[in-house]
Design a binder for these strands. Sequence first.
DNA 1: CTGAAAGCGCTTACAG
DNA 2: CTGAAAGCGCTTACAG
Lengths: 341, 341
Amino acid sequence: MTKPNQKKPQLEDIAAALGISKSTVSRAISGKGRIRAETREKVFACIKEMNYRPNMIAKSLSEQRTYNIGVVIPMDQSEFDAPFFQTCLTGIAKECALHDYDAVVIGTERDNHTQLQRVIENRKVDGVLVTRPASDGSIEELLSENGMPYVVLGRSVHSDSVIVDSDHVKGCTELTSYLLMSTPPDKLGLLIGNMEYTVNRSRYTGFMSAFGSSHAEERLIFTGADSELKFTKAVSMLLREKPSCIVCGDDMLCMKLLATLNARGMRIPEDIRVASFYDSVYLDSYSPPITSLIFDAAKLGSAAAAKLMNLLSGAPAGEHLPLMSFEMLIRRSTMNPGQNK
Amino acid sequence: MTKPNQKKPQLEDIAAALGISKSTVSRAISGKGRIRAETREKVFACIKEMNYRPNMIAKSLSEQRTYNIGVVIPMDQSEFDAPFFQTCLTGIAKECALHDYDAVVIGTERDNHTQLQRVIENRKVDGVLVTRPASDGSIEELLSENGMPYVVLGRSVHSDSVIVDSDHVKGCTELTSYLLMSTPPDKLGLLIGNMEYTVNRSRYTGFMSAFGSSHAEERLIFTGADSELKFTKAVSMLLREKPSCIVCGDDMLCMKLLATLNARGMRIPEDIRVASFYDSVYLDSYSPPITSLIFDAAKLGSAAAAKLMNLLSGAPAGEHLPLMSFEMLIRRSTMNPGQNK
DNA sequence: CTGAAAGCGCTTACAG
DNA sequence: CTGAAAGCGCTTACAG
């Protein structure tokens, strides 16, 4: 507002103002090559003064990089998972901003990666973040064929992919252990989805490893409860065994279980306790709120973005970062009759 | 795979292959300026043959446009609304791809528009799509101050903003009318959120206009049920009047209402019927599924994106498009005792 | 209808 | 430590 009708200043302008060459200004900014400290300071002062911002497009063209990363998100997703992607995306955007990068949306469908192809062919991004890898690994394949650096969230079937993931195993172990600590010991039932997904395998592993060899607790396990039919069957078999607590692999499964229990007039936690290995808004707005594991999707996203941008700046490529952590939220759905609050 | 170690061809290469100049090739591609049909065809054939794709960055630099649009999404959103944004985003991305544009994510918080500022200053986008305008209009302000073209989804306090919105009024009128057609006529209760939001005002208007002057139907209205306290109060007052059907302004409110009814042991639809002016996954996975209005977020997103890109290509700026439409989903929650199916 | 040339706004060898 | 110049890969007046 102070300087109304002024064009955006360019490198040239600030060079002229200082009576030096563009090259020098450019070097001062980038920090590449030797620059007298004094010169550098003059330049920075002038930049501030004239409110100069480099034209990223021009920078891109000469540096042969876009300062954009692509973010693959599913277009055919059940909307149930939307909160994850949305939150994840905000984490990614935030991290990008920190590095003066931007995130470009790439929608993919099951077997339709045209958007991804377009972006690659148009060279609009320097690297890609895959928030949900296709189960056949086709996305990673496309990416590596084109020499496009990428990072995947969760697991990848491509063993050479750089990944960032939450520690599902550990989380599930801890939640299960917590449940086993109750007195009297819980008779736990586990209800889990499609075991082709690595997440579900991790959940299973986590659950099982909470039972030390010395433990003699009973446990009832139903995996693969992904279809309506299998689910119904699993639940009725499960209930027949009268577990004191049922643990669900994810929030979706849990919602369905809750509906079923509700229909049968079973009260939570009085008649049966319920916990979930994956949180969701629905679960904590449910009454009673459901004990569950919370994974910080925003943090996951920003960690992945950071990793990718490191890769792009030719950084040490990275020893596998420690897996992202989680929180355990103990809520009313698993309160013991004896417990208060 | 057929031509393994070949660099990406450039304009120059295809010009050379054809023995003509870059200018001509460029013109053939862009369609600007006169070109002999024959030449054009040769060029296109060669492009296909050599699998040429223009370098968008170079194109950007010389055309002074980025072929990117920014999409403002909320970072501080209750995750409840996530499905809307996610779906919207996929619609946007799809539309962008059609025009060879890309969508860049811009996260905003209540009073923190730094990401937006960055993107503007870095000139990374040609225009911006605001999926959720700040209630004080500060986003639109920032945009217009910077001469950045934009389109907002929903309403804007800035009267000169280009907007794309769903027809909430019409939808609500139709759903309400439908409910009024039942025999015996329903005694309708309306439960609506904060009336500062224009959506809620539209909903209210829609609801009311379903009651013609000749109608003598009873109606009970509670607005502003946005806090926990007001909600609880509104619901108990409402129930005291024994409505035969309660209509909720949105899915969130509806979820809460359902929980309350459930707690009171009221069955749906036997004891009371329920409908919502806004659909969500939660509502249709609820048992029984809830009658509601469905707005196509993907279509909304793509329409808005299309409009923005029209603006950017200097198109007729657009007479206000007709509002985006909706669907009415009649489900079990509003079945009359007498009705079948 | 077509070409040679300048230009978009940066970066970066190459010489000092 | 600094400058002049070429280059990134397109587009587009300007001349034919």
